[in-house]
Simulated assay, not measured.
Amino acid sequence: MRWPVKGRDQARLKLVSRLLRAMRAENAPEACGRRLLRDWLSAAQRAQFDADRCFDVTGSDSGKRYRICYGTAANIRELDRDGKEGTGWCFAPVGALVPGDVMLAQKIALETSEAAALALANRVPLIPRLTH
């Protein structure tokens, strides 16, 4: 038998329900992946990611700059000297990973083994990205 909830108890129940939903969302795989990614970003990269959902890295071999945008595929763009986006690249670890985990793997690969990462990558046509 369910007892009717009224007044202050109803308000408390709604508050607890919202709190539980927020806790579940905070512990969801995508949120955990985003937190791990942010922990590995420099302060400048973190600020860029928070503002634009992307961040720039420097390749370990060529010194070229790349922009990694939120996503799991075709989300890397090579930048020219003026910071303009050029060639698109697509590579990712094997498995069904959340965007934060994929982006962290891409960051580490480009910053430590750029040539090996690009040897496995596919070039993709530059498609203008949507901003949020």
Results as ranks from 00 to 15, higher is better:
residue 100 G to Y: 04
residue 43 A to R: 09
residue 64 K to Y: 14
residue 130 L to F: 15
residue 44 A to S: 15
residue 123 R to L: 07
residue 7 G to C: 10
residue 23 M to E: 08
residue 90 C to H: 09
residue 111 E to Q: 10
residue 21 R to C: 09
residue 80 D to F: 11
residue 16 V to Y: 13
residue 34 R to C: 07
residue 73 A to Q: 01
residue 84 K to D: 07
residue 51 A to S: 03
residue 45 Q to V: 05
residue 18 R to W: 12
residue 23 M to L: 15
residue 127 I to C: 11
residue 77 R to Q: 04
residue 34 R to K: 08
residue 46 R to K: 13
residue 49 F to Y: 11
residue 55 F to D: 05
residue 107 K to Q: 13
residue 86 G to D: 04
residue 63 G to H: 03
residue 11 A to Q: 11
residue 45 Q to N: 01
residue 5 V to G: 08
residue 57 V to R: 01
residue 30 E to P: 02
residue 83 G to H: 05
residue 38 R to P: 02
residue 110 L to C: 02
residue 126 L to Q: 07
residue 6 K to R: 13
residue 122 N to E: 11
residue 132 H to I: 09
residue 34 R to G: 01
residue 64 K to A: 12
residue 91 F to D: 02
residue 24 R to H: 04
residue 74 A to Y: 08
residue 127 I to T: 14
residue 52 D to H: 14
residue 27 N to P: 06
residue 10 Q to M: 14
residue 105 A to Q: 06
residue 58 T to P: 04
residue 1 M to C: 08
residue 102 V to D: 08
residue 71 G to E: 09
residue 19 L to D: 13
residue 81 R to I: 10
residue 110 L to T: 08
residue 46 R to P: 04
residue 69 C to P: 00
residue 74 A to T: 03
residue 72 T to G: 15
residue 20 L to K: 12
residue 85 E to Y: 00
residue 71 G to H: 05
residue 125 P to A: 02
residue 119 A to Y: 00
residue 23 M to F: 05
residue 46 R to V: 00
residue 123 R to E: 04
residue 132 H to P: 01
residue 112 T to S: 07
residue 61 D to S: 10
residue 128 P to V: 10
residue 98 V to N: 07
residue 97 L to H: 11
residue 72 T to M: 04
residue 32 C to P: 01
residue 120 L to K: 10
residue 34 R to V: 11
residue 48 Q to F: 05
residue 18 R to H: 11
residue 36 L to C: 11
residue 8 R to I: 13
residue 119 A to K: 05
residue 16 V to Q: 15
residue 7 G to D: 08
residue 94 V to H: 12
residue 77 R to G: 00
residue 14 K to E: 11
residue 114 E to W: 05
residue 1 M to H: 09
residue 69 C to Q: 15
residue 41 L to M: 10
residue 56 D to W: 03
residue 120 L to Q: 12
residue 55 F to K: 03
residue 8 R to E: 11
residue 58 T to Y: 08
residue 108 I to D: 02
residue 7 G to Q: 01
